[in-house]
Design a protein around this nucleic acid. Structure first.
Length: 540
RNA sequence: GCUCGUGUGGUGUAGUUCGGUCCAUCAUGCCGCCCUUUCGAGGCGGCGACCCGGGUUCAAAUCCCGGCACGAGCACCA
């Protein structure tokens, strides 16, 4: 019935009549189904009206939702990290979503370094470049515009003066605690009603260092009656005498994020802000500021908090501390959720993007598994990865031929099972000794992958057939002459697991990702002709 | 406490604007089968969800009211 009304909107106002008719038909059908079975009813329907059985399945929207109020070619977005470390998996969402929208709308992305706090979150000099390169790796191109807040301080300070001159800002000399008390009770602070001239001279004292840290802030006048206390006369700039790694002691007054970001978004002509929903109050504060300046606030969208099961909670400053204390080797330590660590391990940037785009933009707080990212990665890299044999806990067996078989001396195996990478690996088995994993040796009848069915007796592998005779398990193996010592490093939580074994010594090239048969993907980290092959685990 | 936001299978996600073609999409996960493509590959099949309670309506995932749960902000951090 719903379907009829859906297809025939003209019948909707006659729904009551229709309902009776439908009920009669349903009754007939039910009786039929009851007496002769559902199939009979189905058959009857097929004869009279076969189309009714064709239900069209609904499709899932792919890609990102439309951006509200967006005009192709005129969209300006921004991604604004703090340069206190390289980018992490969390940042990847921001980079991907912003750059993807820019692609969709022929827009631009501003990479903006919000480095206005040298005290609580001191910037790292190198981090500016790290972030630029992480961004480029993730998006395949450089940001359209790069700005550093610390280089644009003059602009912010000028606007601060404008704000004081316009009398919609004031210098407040109350202590943070005192102001909070007043604010929570909707009371104005005494500094609020100072003359413009007095505010300007106080401002000078902030700028020339007469007033020390914590002795004054510049506030934006809003209203003390606002229902949300967080918005009431919010602080815009404060005094900070700490040295800034990029500009030293050039400035004594620094803007806070809400102010700096608001001004800079306006300066850059940002049309759409996509930020975490923890910044919703920022939007509200900034909207109030924009009203003072008579600017239009950009469209704003939010995403919720993302937690990756395997990494738990992490913060850039926390990682920094751990690295300094030696708990991790560096920012690209494979246990870390940084972009550089993921890149080092062999994650593919397109797969990462696909993952974040698939998650989309929702305000829900979500908790996703690294497995999902790995699934995206596998499907992306599989066609590019050659296979290699890596035998863990190797045991050496003697290959024996039964009376009828004749041993091949060389076998060739595809580099890729579907031959997506052309060519073959050639194994010489003249030597008659092979490596098998200990766990596989314990099985009696197995098939050596791409070679032969064998029976294991004592330390012998007796060939029974080159053809596959039965459903016995297929295992990977390695001729003695092809084997080279290798170690596989597997990051697991805060630990590192080392697995030793014998690796197929065939075109071992540093930086290549290979699929270790029956084990998983790994990247080759050792130099091309080193004595021991070093492998770093990617995923299964 | 105040302010704001979010609730669709185990995990994510589509559908919610404008109620009907939704016995709800897709991915991931899990289970089974097939396969000389090894596996966490591929193929096939299966499992599994509209937070709860009312209301409006011929019809509610969708609208209204009331609960509940979870999260965030309330920094001179970003």
């Amino acid at each position: 019935m719903g379907r009829i009304l859906g297809e025939r909107t003209d019948l909707r106002n006659r729904a009551k009549e229709l309902k009776r008719l439908v009920e009669i038909e349903v009754e007939i059908a039910n009786t039929l189904a009851h007496e002769k079975g559902v199939d009979a009813a189905r058959k009857a329907l097929e004869e009279t009206n076969p189309e009714a059985l064709n239900r069209q399945k609904q499709a899932k929207r792919v890609g990102l939702k439309d951006l509200p109020n967006a005009e192709k070619g005129k969209v300006v977005l921004r991604f604004a990290p703090n340069p206190n470390g390289p980018l992490t998996l969390g940042h990847a969402r921001g980079v991907t979503i912003n750059s993807e929208y820019a692609n969709l709308y022929d827009g631009k992305v501003v990479l903006r370094f919000d480095d206005t706090d040298s005290k609580v979150k001191p910037p790292i000099k190198e981090a500016y470049e790290w972030i630029e390169s992480d961004y480029k790796w993730l998006t395949g191109k450089k940001p359209d515009i790069i700005v550093r807040a610390s280089e644009r301080m003059m602009i912010y300070l000028q606007y601060a003066v404008k704000m004081l001159e316009g009398n919609f800002g004031y210098v407040c000399k109350c202590s943070a605690a005192k102001f909070k008390k007043l604010r929570d009770n909707s009371l104005e602070c005494p500094c609020r009603n100072k003359e413009v001239q007095e505010n300007l001279s106080d401002w000078k004292m902030m700028e020339n260092g007469t007033l020390k840290e914590g002795e004054a802030v510049v506030r934006v006048k809003t209203s003390m009656d606002l229902p949300n206390p967080a918005l009431r006369d919010w602080p815009a700039l404060r005094i900070q005498h700490t040295l800034h790694p990029m500009v030293g002691d050039k400035y004594k007054v620094w803007p806070l994020l809400d102010f700096q970001s608001a001004i800079e978004d306006h300066e850059q002509g940002v049309t759409h802000i996509i930020r975490g929903k923890d910044l919703m109050d920022s939007t509200r504060k900034q909207t109030l500021l924009y009203a003072h300046f008579q600017w239009d606030y950009p469209e704003t969208l939010y995403w919720g908090r993302v937690k990756i099961h395997e990494f738990g909670r992490f913060s850039t400053s926390g990682m920094r501390k751990d690295i300094e204390e030696g708990n991790f080797t560096d920012w690209d330590d494979p246990r870390l959720p940084t972009i550089r660590a993921l890149q080092r391990r062999g994650f593919n940037s397109d797969a990462m993007r696909a993952f974040w785009i698939d998650l989309g933009l929702t305000q829900k707080d979500i908790s996703v598994s690294l497995q999902t990212i790995e699934a995206f990665n596998s499907s992306k890299i599989d066609e590019m990865c050659e296979r290699r044999s890596f035998v863990r806990n190797p045991e050496l067996l003697e290959l024996k031929t039964s009376e009828k078989g004749i041993n091949n001396q060389e076998i060739s195996i595809n580099r890729h099972p579907m031959n997506l990478i052309e060519g073959a690996r050639v194994w010489n088995i003249d030597d008659k000794r092979i490596y098998l994993e200990k766990v596989d040796v314990e099985k009696e009848n197995i098939r050596l992958k791409d070679y032969a069915d064998i029976e294991i007796k004592d330390s012998n592998a007796i060939i029974q057939s080159y053809e596959r005779l039965d459903r016995r398990p297929i295992v990977h193996w390695l001729p003695f002459s092809m084997a080279k010592k290798a170690i596989l490093t597997i990051p697991q939580g805060n630990d590192i697991i080392i697995q030793e074994g014998m690796m197929e010594n065939f075109e071992i090239i540093k930086g290549n990702i290979v699929q270790l048969e029956r084990v998983g993907y790994a990247i080759i980290e050792s130099e091309n002709n080193s004595d021991i092959i070093k492998l770093l685990w990617l995923h299964g």
